[in-house]
Simulated scan of single mutants.
Amino acid sequence: MTATLSASKPSDTRHSVQEDVFAVVIATAMISFAVMLLRQAGVMTGGTAGIALYLHYTFAVPFGAAFFMLNLPFYYLALRRMGRVFTFKTFCAVGLVAFFSDRHALFIHIDQLQPLYAALVGNALLGVGFLMLFRHKASLGGVNILALYIQDRYGIKAGWLQMGVDISVLLASLTFISLPVLGVSVLGAVLLNFIIAQNHRADRYSA
C-alpha cells in the first residue's frame, strides 16, 4: 500500500493548466500591486524590479516597459537551463506584471503612504507572489531565473543569493533616495528574501 501511494503522489500533486493560469494571474496582480505601493512611497526594491524602478525614478521611464525590456536577455538562460514550459510561464508572468503595474493607478490613488509601511507590506506581498510563481514552475525572470538555476544546480538557497543582489541594487539607489528611505528599503528586501528562503524549499513542496 505504501509503495502504491508513493508511486501515485507525483501525478496527484502536479498542477493542471487551469491551476497554473489562475496562479500566474493572481500572483502577477499581487506583485504589480506591491510595486505600486513601493512606487507611491518612493521606496526601492532589488533585483530586476529594482533596476526598473531605478530607471523609473531617474529617467521617468514607465516601470512596465523598463521591466519587460530588462528581462529579455535572461530568457535564453531560462530556455537552455529551465526548459520551454518554465520559460513560457515566466515570459507570461513578466508580461502581466509589466501590464498590470501601469494600470493600477487607473483604479486607485493613495494620497499618503508611509515608507516603512509600504516597504514591509509591499515586500511581503512580493514574497507571497514570488512563492506562487515558483511553485507553479515560473518566475519573474532576471535575477529570479539565475537564483533558481543556481539553487537547483548547486543547492544554494534562491533567497540568499537574491538578497545579495538586492542589497547591491539598493546601495546604488543612494544617488536619489535618502538614507532613511534606503534603510526601510533594505529592511523590506531582507523581509522579502527571508520569506523566500524560509518557504521555497524543494524538500517541502513538489508539484
Rank of each mutant, 00 (worst) to 15 (best):
T2M: 10
L5D: 12
L5W: 05
K9F: 12
P10T: 06
S11L: 13
T13G: 00
R14N: 07
H15G: 02
A23H: 04
A23T: 15
V24F: 03
V24E: 00
V25K: 04
V25P: 09
I26C: 15
T28L: 07
A29L: 15
M30P: 02
S32R: 08
S32P: 09
S32F: 04
A34T: 09
A34N: 13
V35Y: 10
V35I: 15
R39F: 01
A41L: 08
A41T: 07
G42Q: 04
V43I: 14
V43A: 03
M44R: 08
G46D: 00
G47S: 09
T48S: 13
I51D: 01
Y54G: 07
Y57D: 12
T58D: 05
T58W: 05
F63L: 14
F63I: 10
F63N: 09
F63V: 11
G64Y: 08
A65Y: 12
A65S: 10
A65N: 02
A66F: 08
F67L: 11
P73T: 09
Y76D: 00
A78M: 12
A78S: 15
R81C: 02
F86E: 05
T87F: 03
F88H: 01
T90P: 05
F91T: 14
A93D: 04
V94Y: 08
V97Q: 03
V97R: 05
A98N: 03
S101C: 08
S101M: 04
H104M: 10
A105W: 06
A105R: 10
I108A: 06
I108K: 01
H109D: 14
I110F: 12
I110T: 09
D111E: 13
L113T: 10
L113K: 11
Q114N: 14
P115A: 10
Y117T: 15
A119I: 02
A119S: 13
L120E: 02
V121S: 03
N123D: 06
A124G: 15
G129K: 10
L131M: 08
L131N: 05
L133I: 11
L133V: 06
H136L: 02
H136A: 02
H136M: 04
H136Q: 07
K137E: 12
K137W: 06
K137D: 13
S139H: 01
S139M: 01
L140A: 03
V143E: 06
I145F: 03
I145N: 13
A147N: 14
A147L: 01
L148Q: 13
Q151L: 03
D152A: 15
G155V: 04
W160K: 12
V165G: 03
V169W: 00
V169F: 02
A172R: 00
S173G: 10
I177L: 13
S178W: 06
L179Y: 14
V186M: 13
I195V: 14
I196S: 02
I196F: 05
Q198L: 13
H200C: 01
R201Q: 15
A202F: 11
Y205K: 07
